[in-house]
């Protein structure tokens, strides 16, 4: 921190950060509050304390079905995005320079709004296969998750000693052995972080899932969206709170294992 910052500015900065924190976190806190309120209307601040709405949510076949669909989907997306994104990152890291055309292409799903790609995928899928299916969602979520895996893995590979692979060659390591003993261990933290992001993106994704939904294909965010459009109630707050807690858990694991700040500013 640069010293000699005027005192009033330090105070202003503190107040500013506090307000920003309230602004950023208030919606989450409010949802959590509603989920334990005894009132059967959505209200904040909460009145009383109850776990009734959680029992309600866990007893609802609609929510449970949506949860299992989302979980299955997120796990499969994590696997496919990590494999394809990890391999692509290794390939990209061997290129002469970063920021080349191939890298831009791989990262383009980050830049292009998913609604544009969602509507195209729906139309293409309908033309080729008819009704949308689990595989359509799997494909869609994998496409948007791959860039995150690539970015975290490339960030880790950029920090490594560029001579490691050459050193391994001079020590007699053949192609496959270099991949197994040198490259993959180097990628590990980036791949892990990318996998966490991939899971989280798929589990929370709403836009693609809304476009590709059908009555048998309702993910948890879509189920919540439908309820919010219809009429918000404390049960949907309980489900939302569970989603927040899953995100918090993922973040804690990520921070413990690898450190958040490292991947936040890349």
């Amino acid at each position: 921190m640069v010293r000699a910052v005027p005192g009033w500015l330090r105070i202003a900065a503190f107040v500013f950060v506090l307000l920003a924190a309230i602004f950023m976190l208030a919606p989450l806190v409010v949802v959590m509050g509603v989920s334990v309120s005894e009132s059967q209307f959505v209200a904040f601040p909460p009145q009383g304390f109850t776990f009734r709405w959680y029992e309600n949510a866990l007893g609802s076949p609609a929510y449970l079905g949506a949860f299992w669909l989302s979980l299955n989907l997120a796990v499969l997306v994590t696997v496919s995005a990590s494999l394809l994104g990890g391999a692509a990152a290794i390939g990209l890291s061997r290129g002469r320079r970063s920021g080349g055309a191939v890298e831009t292409f791989f990262l383009s799903p980050l830049v292009l709004p998913s609604i544009i790609f969602a509507i195209g995928l729906l139309m293409l899928w309908s033309a080729v296969f008819g009704a949308t299916s689990f595989y359509a969602l799997w494909l869609a979520h994998t496409v948007v998750a791959i860039p995150y895996v690539i970015r975290t893995t490339l960030a880790v590979l950029a920090e490594r000693d560029p001579f490691l692979e050459e050193a391994a060659r001079t020590m007699g390591a053949t192609r496959l052995k270099r991949l197994w003993f040198v490259t993959l261990p180097q990628c590990r933290p980036g791949l892990l972080a990318g996998a966490f992001f991939a899971f989280n993106i798929s589990f929370d994704e709403a836009v693609l899932s809304l476009f590709l939904r059908n009555p048998n294909l309702t993910t948890l965010p879509v189920q919540i969206y439908g309820q919010l459009e219809f009429s918000p109630d404390p049960t949907v707050a309980a489900v939302s709170t569970l989603m927040i807690l899953i995100t918090v858990a993922l973040m804690l694991i990520l921070e413990r294992m690898l450190g958040l700040t490292r991947f936040a500013s890349g």
Binding site: R160, F163, E166, A167, T170, M171, T174, F181, P185
Partner: peptide, 30 residues
């Protein structure tokens, strides 16, 4: 990898995920 040589790099190029002994064993293992 097929030449009977050893090379020491300016940056040392030690494999960060292996211990000292594992690093030294690496060429023998390969």
């Amino acid at each position: 990898e097929k030449r009977d040589i050893a090379m020491m790099f300016q940056s040392y190029a030690l494999l960060p995920h292996m211990s000292v002994a594992e690093n030294v064993r690496f060429p023998l293992r390969m």
